[in-house]
Design a binder for these strands. Structure first.
Lengths: 181, 181
DNA sequence: CGATGCATGTAAGCTGTTACATGATTGC
DNA sequence: GCAATCATGTAACAGCTTACATGCATCG
């Protein structure tokens, strides 16, 4: 049977299973919550049904593991799962995917004109402060990763830092230009 | 009655109505499609019900306009709509929103390890090429906007260019580092 | 006179969320 | 013994998409 294309969260979860196996679904959720990006809430309502689906399709194996008496399932990726993960990964070259980054801050800048002059300046100042705080978080997260131990995670986290730096510099420019006019 | 917080697409659509009024729902969809970001498909199935909802809540006014015989509705924002738009805009300072940027390319880099050495290099090369193409698009889009005519749109589009430049530089670094090891 | 663009809308489905529900284990 | 954490799961809902359906206007 042909292997279907995974959704974004499916790809990420399957990638995490591949990296941490054997691991629990709970651990995947913890990993996603620890990331500086708040995009994936990785709620129980998405992760558990998602994993059950991948299991039904033969992409992950889940074995009951009652070593410590707790109800607990150890997840592992299958060869079929690894094939699906590879397929998902290279869909990254799709132009639609490359251009699908969402930035709610950037969306809002298109409409700054509705605020009063004072309101706009105050909003942009607050925004710069929060963005600096967020940049600090992404840098801290990068520092928790060893480049030699996990080069992929290192470059992923480095990307977050670089992109946040660009967002901050751009926001500062917007604030400075819109403050005196 | 208290004004509820708008969703992302609601905020963007209401902002566009405010900017272009009087305008049709169709024009909003064209604007969103013309943007270099592919995030908002702004499908008929989302835009028309959305606008009907905002109209029910007294945030937009829609008047039948059969000037050219065509079935057509002219949209305008109301004072209540403008208040909602302002409220939505300043929610940008929320740390959760600031950190909610999604980048499917960056997500995938965390799992580059599943690819073979050759596959990884080839994927990253393709990715750099596509990212360069996308950067060209964001720059073209920026060039269509007059800074003096619409400073907000100018800075919004400038943000897209800056962030895409950062993504490209980061990707090139990843490719160069992962190619010879 | 046919293709393309303008213009509005609905129905079904996908993918995620929040909130709820349950229960065992570990540490203070 | 009680709180926090580990661990799994369900039900209802939110917000968007795709695909479908309709019809007039404009241009070649």
């Amino acid at each position: 049977m042909a292997i279907r294309t995974l959704s974004e969260l499916e790809g990420v979860c399957l990638g995490l299973v591949n990296k941490h196996q054997p691991c629990t679904a709970y651990l995947l959720r913890q990993e996603l919550k620890a990331a500086p990006s708040s995009h994936w809430q990785a709620s129980a309502g998405s992760v558990y049904p998602l994993l059950a689906r991948l299991q039904d399709e033969g992409m992950v194996l889940s074995t009951a593991d009652r070593a410590d008496g707790r109800k607990r399932r150890a997840l592992r990726i299958t060869p079929r799962g690894r094939a699906a993960l590879k397929k998902w990964l290279v869909t990254g070259v799709d132009p639609d995917l490359i251009s699908s980054v969402t930035d709610p801050i950037r969306s809002r800048t298109f409409f700054l004109g509705v605020l009063s002059d004072a309101g706009r300046v105050s909003y942009l100042n607050d925004l710069v402060i929060e963005m600096e705080r967020f940049l600090g978080k992404t840098r801290n997260y990068l520092n928790t990763i060893s480049r030699t131990d996990d080069i992929d995670a290192y470059f992923g986290a480095l990307g977050a830092v670089r992109i946040t730096e660009a967002r901050l510099e751009w926001l500062q420019e917007v604030r400075n230009e819109l403050s005196h006019c």
